[in-house]
């Protein structure tokens, strides 16, 4: 691999993310604002975003902090929301060629969006095998940069936005925009319906246990529905995530 080949693969990876980057800007700004609402200092809020680097869990945890949830419940919530990365990790690690890029870095920068775009392009052979590590790094790094900058903008200017604009509602819109395109078959819809309705029914439970119980039962119901429908359906975890950001 030459340096110029590396550089052009890195840049191609960055460019491939252009279609999805506008969508993460309001999402990141809201996550910065939510961290401030949770009582974090601006510096802590930015570090929080750098350390966790997973938007849905950042916002959910910030809201739990705001509502004085138990610390262990908050940690558990972050873990549950980010459990999906195990699935991405299994898939992406098998698609990338050996390279000098540290595996820990490849893991840290992984996002829903960069995974979805890269896995899709790799599977369709749109990126030569030897260029994939740099391509993936470029796509993930641009996501990281935009995410952190937009979080910073939210932290800096979020407080001057009047509450009458109801921008807090944007949190739910972000989650809706992430979740809905993934509901592509009956078992996934069952998982969402059960998770959502059970969480509403249990929302008064102490320690926000409703979220944990509803998530686990929702996952189980989706899985059992799929099992019941067919025992030899093809595994579609990959496509599922990939097509979500087209």
């Amino acid at each position: 691999m030459t340096t110029s080949q590396n550089r052009s693969a890195f840049l191609s990876g960055m460019l491939a993310m252009l279609p999805v980057t506008p969508g993460i800007i309001p999402f990141a700004m809201i996550s910065g604002m939510a961290a401030l609402d949770a009582g974090m200092s601006p510096l802590t809020a930015q570090l929080y975003s750098v350390f966790v680097f997973a938007g849905a869990s950042q916002i959910a945890a910030a809201q739990l902090i705001t509502s004085h949830a138990e610390p262990l419940v908050i940690i558990l919530t972050i873990w549950i929301i980010n459990l999906r990365f195990v699935m991405y990790s299994a898939s992406m690690s098998s698609k990338l060629p050996p390279s000098s890029i540290p595996k820990a870095l490849q893991a840290y920068v992984m996002t829903d969006q960069s995974f979805a775009i890269c896995a899709g392009m790799f599977d369709q052979n749109q990126v030569p095998y030897e260029n994939r590590a740099m391509f993936y790094l470029g796509s993930s790094v641009i996501m990281w940069l935009i995410w952190q900058m937009a979080t910073g903008v939210g932290i800096a200017f979020g407080s001057i936005i009047p509450t009458s604009w109801s921008l807090d509602f944007g949190v739910w819109l972000c989650f809706i925009a992430i979740m809905i395109p993934g509901l592509k078959d009956f078992p996934a819809i069952i998982a969402a319906l059960v998770g959502g309705s059970l969480a509403l029914a249990l929302h008064g439970l102490p320690f926000n246990l409703g979220l944990v119980i509803a998530s686990v039962v929702g996952i189980a119901c989706g899985y059992l529905t799929e099992k019941k429908l067919s025992s030899n359906l093809p595994v579609k975890s990959d496509n599922d995530a990939k097509e979500r950001f087209q």
Binding site: M179, L183, L198, L200, L211, G218
Partner: peptide
């Protein structure tokens, strides 16, 4: 197969309430 239901179940459990 199990993990693929994490995003719909968890996100819906956040959104609906």
């Amino acid at each position: 197969r199990i993990l693929r239901f994490v995003p719909p179940a968890v996100l819906a459990a956040l959104i609906v309430p």
